[in-house]
Nucleic acid binder design. Structure first.
Lengths: 354, 354
DNA sequence: GCAGGTGGTGGAACCGCTTCCACACCTTCT
DNA sequence: AGAAGGTGTGGAAGCGGTTCCACCACCTGC
């Protein structure tokens, strides 16, 4: 391996000078710089990131913690992250998290190794002690889609999202509205589903509907599981006229179940999802759109800013907007609809051109 | 920052001993080990990965080069990669590649920094010079879905895949079969689409069909683009009865175009895709299944094995099997089919919920 | 013509760990 | 009892950069 002193010897200069050339220090005469560059070229010298890091105390690395096995939305967020990181002088180290044990381990080793200059944590709240440790070590942390104290956070208002979805259904005249979401005490500690459920309950209560526990089902965040839960709902003596699923992935499970039960969507059953993943547009799924890509991009930008400033990032909560995207899986209860033909045609066309 | 010498002092031992404890050397007495562990605990000491790396010459890092903005299939591969890496003592450094300039840069900086112990390159062939440089530096490289000399490779037989898809259509009686794929001279150098096209041509030639250049269209790997290309095909005076799309993403574009043109799939138009991404099962898309997840997993395993052996990995080409998955977007030409009613009902239903 | 910059440079110390060598102490064998 | 061989341990020498300090020409201004 060719080192800086090889270069120095070959160029007939000191090591310090080579280092200065490498770091674009202005204090090098053009002639010397030329000699050094020539030697670098001739030897095909590449500086060692490790050695540089040890000297400077920086890693040139940003860690991204993301449970990308469980949640499809993670990828869209990751795209945003990568885009924001595009020209930054940092490498992206990816930490996947799949199991709870894995999660604790992961965080311990993260804060342990202290191997990153900054940390972007997505969709799962870090243990408070680990978070504290990171902050104590001046490692900037940004949370996306997760809550934690004292660090900047990019969030959506999941409760409001639940309200938006449910309100839409209520406005269409639905009353027997079911909900399918994650287990409230899921092992990884995801909370968005539970918050969305809260919004759902609020709107139903406002509409004067009684609690109907049989219409609320929980299970793993998975299409097949949601599909089975929907089977149960659709087999109910008084089956719901609409389902609000806590995510688009789960909503597709509901669509499958409806198909299996011989129900036509939206005539016999309205379905609303949440997230607006790529698939949803194609499927014509009515859903609550959240800016997944933007959330990753913004989170990474906050982190980069903090890194550039050298100051710990301000613990601001950034609330990304939500909006209902009405497509082809919702309609007035009973299938009646003002100007059904026009409506239907338009909806179809809209979806097909996108 | 607390260092190894702090620990040594506190435990009343030498630095070497602390290091031995950290690395589970058997040559430490239980009593000493206890003292050291206690000191580590008391000081909340965490070893610096950087310093360790500098000493050992290892990075504990594996680089994964993956163009995950352009290709949806990349994520499924990444899942496999992450799974294989799960318990390995390496971090995953992700290098996204989106533009050609970006690509050259990326590789230069990769080989440059020499910041990874091994490199997994997906879907795009690395420049030969950079590959050579890596090999020269004893950095093991594994290619997945890309070709290169002298390094192990995980591949599928894209030409055969093209044959499988086209043969299926020919067997259903189709003759006017169109193809939609990537630009053969696309900037990033993807070749799979071109190979699939070759298989398509071969089978058509065997079937005695003349070349019909107007039935072959190229464009960016993108649903919207594929959709426009399909519009053109469907507007042809003699429109094709079937389309083979080089990927499922492009196939969904074709389905959109068919919907827009008022054609019913598969009665009026058969569509075959390639990849079998998650979406495809849900959509009922007939496609050529390739084991994306497995490809990532296998690639990473090869790399880990090479790293464990310390030997450069054998330049073996691993050929993953392909198989046609017949779903609901293909049928005999003209829509005739044994047991058409049952078939049709199922197909229609699928389409309506999607 | 000399003190006092100033731009450019070499070299050593240091970053925090691993590893090798030397050595002290304790068995065990002859 | 003394040599030989094991164990366990301390300490120093790297690993390959950065950075600070000292220093050497020069050049400027009086």
């Amino acid at each position: 391996m060719v080192t800086i002193s090889d270069v120095a010897r070959r160029a007939g200069v000191g090591e310090g000078t080579v280092s200065r050339v490498l770091n674009d220090s202005p204090k090098v005469s053009p002639a010397t710089r030329g000699k050094v560059l020539e030697a670098i070229d001739a030897l095909d010298y590449r500086p060692s990131a490790l050695a540089r890091g040890l000297s400077t105390g920086r890693f040139s690395t940003i860690g991204v913690v993301i449970p990308f096995f469980t949640h499809a939305s993670a990828f869209e967020r990751l795209r945003g992250v990568a885009a924001a990181l595009h020209d930054a002088p940092y490498d992206l180290v990816l930490f996947n998290v799949e199991s709870p044990i894995h999660r604790a381990e992961q965080f311990a080793s993260l804060t342990g190794r202290a191997g990153t200059d900054g940390l972007l944590v997505m969709s799962l709240p870090p243990p408070a002690t680990e978070l504290a440790r990171l902050v104590a070590r001046d490692v900037p942390v940004v949370l996306v889609d997760a809550r934690g104290d004292g660090v900047p956070t990019v969030l959506i208002d999941d409760v409001e999202g639940g309200r938006i979805a449910t309100r839409h259904l209520v406005e269409l005249g639905h009353r027997r509205i079911a909900f399918i979401g994650d287990d409230p005490d899921n092992a990884l500690g995801f909370t968005s589903s539970t918050h969305r459920e809260r919004g759902y309950r609020e709107v139903l209560a406002e509409a004067g509907e009684p609690d109907r526990p049989e219409l609320v089902r929980h299970g793993a965040h998975d299409r097949a599981v949601a599909s089975r839960l929907a089977d149960e709902l659709l087999a109910l003596p008084e089956r719901p006229t609409a389902v609000f699923a806590a995510s688009d992935v789960q909503a597709t499970g509901v669509l499958e179940a409806a198909r299996r039960a011989g129900l036509e969507v939206p005539r016999d059953l309205s379905v609303v999802g949440f997230d607006d993943i790529e698939l949803s547009e194609y499927l014509g799924l009515t859903t609550v759109h959240q800016r997944l890509y933007d959330s990753g991009e913004l989170g990474m930008r906050l982190l980069l800013d903090a890194l550039a400033d050298g100051t710990p990032p301000a613990p601001v909560v950034h609330d990304l907007p939500l909006r209902l995207v009405e497509r082809r899986t919702t309609c007035p209860v009973g299938g009646a609809r003002p100007g059904p033909t026009a409506r239907r045609r338009r909806a179809t066309k809209g979806a097909s051109t996108t």
